[in-house]
C-alpha cells in the first residue's frame, strides 16, 4: 500500500464528508441554511478543481481548506467583522462588569477561576469535552466566534488571522481575550466541576 498517493473519490464525498463539513460550518457560522449552502459550494468547487488536487495532501484536509476559504468569503460578504472596533468599545463595560472589578481590574469573586482539582488524576472524557466546547462556542457572541475559531480550531497564526479578517492586532487580542475568558468560565460551569 502506498500511503503517499491519495486518489480523490468524488462519488464518496457526500457519504464520507458531508456531515463533518456541515458540522464544522455550523460551528463557524451558527446558521443552518448558510452552513448547508457553504457545504454545497465546497463540494462543487472541489469537484471543479479536482485536477488541481496534489498527491501527498489528504482528501479530508483539502476539502476542509476549501470550506475554510468559503467561510472567510462569507464573513467578508456579511461584513461580520466590519465594525469590530465599535462593537468592542460598546460591549466593553458589559464584559468588564461580568468578570472584573471596573475600578482596579481585579477578578470579581464570583467569576475568578477556581482550581480544577479533578483534572490531575481523572482521565479526561474527550467526547464530553468536545460536546461542551461546541455548546460554549454556540453561546459566545457571534462577533467573537470567527476569530476565536480560526485560532482555536484551525490553529492559524495570529498574523494570518489579522490579515484574513482585516483586523488590527490590538482588536485581535481583545477578541481572543474575551473569548478565552468566556470559554474558560463556560467550561468551568458545565464540565470540570460538575
Amino acid at each position: 500500500m502506498n500511503m503517499e498517493v491519495e486518489i480523490l473519490k468524488p462519488g464518496d464525498w457526500v457519504k464520507t464528508y458531508a456531515d463533518y463539513l456541515y458540522s464544522l460550518a455550523l460551528i463557524k457560522v451558527s446558521n443552518k441554511e448558510t452552513a448547508e449552502d457553504l457545504v454545497q459550494e465546497t463540494f462543487l468547487s472541489a469537484f471543479k478543481a479536482k485536477d488541481s488536487f496534489k498527491n501527498g495532501s489528504s482528501e479530508k484536509t483539502w476539502l476542509t481548506a476549501i470550506l475554510k476559504n468559503k467561510i472567510i468569503d462569507h464573513y467578508r460578504k456579511k461584513d461580520i467583522l466590519k465594525d469590530v472596533s465599535s462593537y468592542i468599545s460598546e460591549t466593553n463595560k458589559g464584559f468588564d462588569e461580568h468578570f472584573f472589578d471596573t475600578h482596579n481590574g481585579h477578578w470579581l469573586m464570583e467569576s475568578a477561576p477556581l482550581a480544577w482539582k479533578e483534572l490531575a488524576d481523572a482521565k479526561v472524557n474527550l467526547n464530553e469535552f468536545n460536546k461542551i466546547i461546541q455548546y460554549c462556542i454556540q453561546k459566545m457572541p457571534t462577533k467573537l466566534v470567527p476569530v476565536f475559531v480560526a485560532k482555536f480550531l484551525d490553529e492559524a497564526e495570529s498574523d494570518l488571522i489579522c490579515k484574513e479578517f482585516n483586523i488590527t492586532p490590538s482588536n485581535y487580542w481583545v477578541i481572543i481575550h474575551r473569548a478565552k475568558v468566556l470559554i474558560r468560565s463556560c467550561l468551568e460551569k458545565n464540565w470540570f466541576l460538575s
Partner: peptide
C-alpha cells in the same frame, strides 16, 4: 487552564469528523 483548554482543543476537529454532531439534510 488556558493551556489545558488549548491542548484539549487540538482533538476537536478530529472528533467532529469521527462523530459529527450535526447531520446535513
Amino acid at each position: 487552564q488556558s493551556s489545558i483548554i488549548n491542548h484539549l482543543g487540538e482533538g476537536v476537529i478530529n472528533s467532529i469528523f469521527t462523530d459529527p454532531p450535526h447531520t446535513l439534510s
